[in-house]
Design a protein around this nucleic acid. Structure first.
Lengths: 152, 152
DNA sequence: GCTGAAACAAGTAGTGT
DNA sequence: ACACTACTTGTTTCAGC
């Protein structure tokens, strides 16, 4: 099964994923096509939702978030999931929230200033949410690597 | 304790994190400062490593990755960690790898085409790495939210 | 540490094949 | 589905305050 994306689409996505500020005109030059073709393709890919947005990636440690943790949440009863999720969304330090299979109902990613701050988030906020039975926290000592998936 | 970043830095980071293609000149206008000041600040923030890079965010599902999973890896002996990590890095579908505290030594994020593909990655690749005792996989049914941390 | 002007490069839209 | 042209806008550098 092949994707609905041709070589030009694939190249555009690859190049812009590496550098969102890359000039469209330069991509055109590298692919030996016109400026406006690149424009049209990007417009198409954006309207299709393949391109979601463009963002600057910032260093969270340099901005004061030294403690990163993955935390699994156990629920008292499975039916609390949505309600708990809505409460979790109110906590700014929780930057990602997933419904998952397995031991935990919900799996979250937390960026805290330090370990003490993380403890406060867990004890004074997450644990007080109605329906939360308990949490298991995996503190991230080091992100060995982080990269993009392959576009085929 | 305050950050070493003033209002202009903070605004630049916030605006560019929301939209990496935003014109620097427009940021200048919004903040009522000169064009070149924005340039100088961005240069400074980039050289300091606060700004890491700029990337387009793509929809992984539309590009064929339907199954996302968080997977914890248990090691036969803790000292295998680095070696195992280097082997994990060779598997393209593993897009993030962390050393963590708790039950698992290593925690990874996998983007697979479907459940069958995920199974192959785990059984035919991860489980064959020397030092890996076992894995626990949390398949992500839904990412309820994903957002940026607050810049203060 | 910041501005302003000027030269250059890129983005955008319309037209034509 | 693509290229060409003309017009608008943004980027970048540097002299000067």
């Amino acid at each position: 099964m092949k994707n609905q994306f041709d070589y030009i689409d694939q190249q555009i996505l690859t190049k812009l994923r590496e550098d969102a500020r890359k000039a469209f005109s330069q991509i055109a030059e590298e692919l030996n096509v016109s400026n406006s073709l690149i424009h049209q393709r990007i417009k198409k890919l954006t309207s299709e939702g393949v391109i979601k947005n463009a963002e600057f990636v910032l260093d969270e440690k340099k901005l004061g978030y030294k403690t990163k943790s993955y935390t699994g949440i156990r629920l008292r009863e499975a039916r609390f999931a949505k309600e708990v999720m809505r409460e979790l969304e109110k906590i700014d330090e929780i930057v990602e929230c997933n419904f998952v299979s397995g031991n935990y109902a919900i799996f979250i990613l937390i960026f805290a200033r330090d370990n003490e701050h993380l403890q406060k988030i867990l004890y004074d906020k997450v644990h007080l949410i109605n329906g939360v039975a308990g949490t298991d926290t995996f503190i991230c000592f080091d992100t060995c690597f982080k990269r993009n998936f392959v576009i085929e």
